[in-house]
């Protein structure tokens, strides 16, 4: 999986959990929280969906890694690729 594909996975999840948010022009390097009306409960939903849809576990200590699309890609892409390799 490329980093761009990984970003799309996160965007798809956000579209799922926040159907009224416009995710078409998200800036990858800006915190998601500053661009969208997301609170801590919504981030919890993102974590849950990563587990449910993709079997990716994000421990609580790593939640801040999901701050922006760029940081999501940095953090999650290796996890996706590790999983594929297994």
């Amino acid at each position: 999986m490329t980093k761009e594909e990984c970003k799309q996975v996160v965007i798809d999840i956000i579209n799922d959990i926040a159907p009224d948010e416009d995710t078409t022009d998200l800036k990858p390097d800006v915190r998601l929280r500053d661009q969208l009306d997301l609170d801590s409960m919504d981030f919890l939903d993102i974590v849950m969906e990563l587990r449910k849809q993709h079997g990716i576990e994000v421990p609580e200590a790593d939640y801040q890694q999901l701050a922006s699309l760029d940081s999501c890609a940095e953090y999650l892409t290796p996890k996706f690729n590790e999983k594929k390799a297994v």
């Binding site: 799922d16 959990i17 159907p19 009224d20 009306d37």
Partner: peptide, 20 residues
């Protein structure tokens, strides 16, 4: 209205994954 930030209704819809 749809898209109003930080309102209880917006939060509710989000949590239940229902669109406005």
């Amino acid at each position: 209205p749809a898209g109003t930030k930080r309102a209880p209704l917006t939060k509710l819809l989000r949590q239940l994954r229902i669109s406005h």
